[in-house]
């Protein structure tokens, strides 16, 4: 068996055996139940609210998975000497690639379960929803939301890889990854207000330039309008979708490449 494949399979086994991962799988059912219960409080279009909530659940679960389970796996490897068990057998880049493949496999499995649960919830909801209210809702919606969540999670994973490649302690690694990810979720809406014409007209040029720089440099994790369009059966905004895909892919490649480069030189 190929060494990288063996380590990737081992990493997946490690993740599947972790109690936190099992708790995440189990909580997909709670999220589905929660989505059904809360959406019933709405009089109209509750199937669309249900999809909104399922997407929120997917985002929360996968963010937790990447930050806590994947983050602690890499952080423990680097700070507690676990990586040194594997490194005599392979290069640093092969090791890190294998670990990341294992983590992605765990993520795909979680998303697959979540997609199945979301599809079942959608099917149940459609039974009780008048056709007019479900207008535009597609059976593909859970799969599309899942794809979007995958892209977001890979961006967070690249943040985690980047942070773990240079930070020195477990707490430091988890803290930086968490803060960076939190900002990536929160900043876009703040930036939307900050970059409005009214605000820009009032601030000095250098502040405007700074605000624009932060707006462009920081990853936008929300993708809220795209998710809304998918959940509500609206036409996808092509420009926004393209920009979202390009930006996420760009961040993933840039941060992961920087992470791999820094890891190849760090002391373990």
């Amino acid at each position: 068996m190929n060494k990288a494949l063996a380590l990737a399979a081992f990493s997946l086994r490690e993740i599947l055996s972790a109690p936190a991962y099992r708790a995440l799988i189990a909580s997909t059912l709670f999220i589905a139940a929660g989505a059904m219960a809360i959406s019933n409080l709405f009089l109209l279009e509750n199937i669309k609210v249900q999809l909104d909530l399922l997407w929120l659940g997917m985002s929360l679960l996968t963010t937790f998975y990447v930050l806590v389970i994947a983050g602690s796996l890499l952080a423990q490897d680097f700070t507690q000497g676990i990586a040194s068990l594997f490194l005599p057998h392979m290069s640093r880049s092969t090791y890190l690639r294998a670990r990341v493949f294992g983590i992605i496999a765990g993520l795909l499995l979680l998303l697959a379960v979540m997609t199945l649960v979301a599809t079942a919830t959608l099917a149940w909801g459609l039974n009780y929803t008048p056709t007019a209210q479900a207008h535009g809702v597609s059976w593909w919606a859970p799969l599309m939301l899942s794809g979007m969540t995958l892209l977001q999670s890979l961006t967070i994973l690249s943040i985690v890889i980047f942070t773990c490649s240079w930070a020195s302690g477990l707490v430091e690694m988890m803290l930086f990854s968490g803060v960076f990810t939190g900002l990536a979720f929160l900043l876009p809406s703040v930036m939307q207000t900050m970059t409005s014409t009214e605000v820009m007209a009032e601030v000095p040029d250098w502040t405007a330039a700074l605000i624009h720089a932060v707006d462009y440099l920081f990853p936008d994790m929300t993708g809220a309008r795209i998710a809304l369009a998918i959940a509500h059966g609206l036409p996808l905004p092509p420009a926004e979708l393209t920009w979202f895909l390009i930006a996420q892919m760009g961040y993933i490649m840039l941060l992961a490449a920087a992470g791999f480069l820094l890891f190849s030189r760090r002391d373990l």
């Binding site: 086994r13 055996s17 109690p19 507690q80 000497g81 676990i82 068990l85």
Partner: peptide, 17 residues
């Protein structure tokens, strides 16, 4: 072969694995 200090091992898998 290397035996690191404190012998940290992946916690959730078994010795056999």
């Amino acid at each position: 072969g290397y035996l690191p200090e404190l012998a940290q091992l992946p916690p959730s898998v078994t010795a056999w694995q």
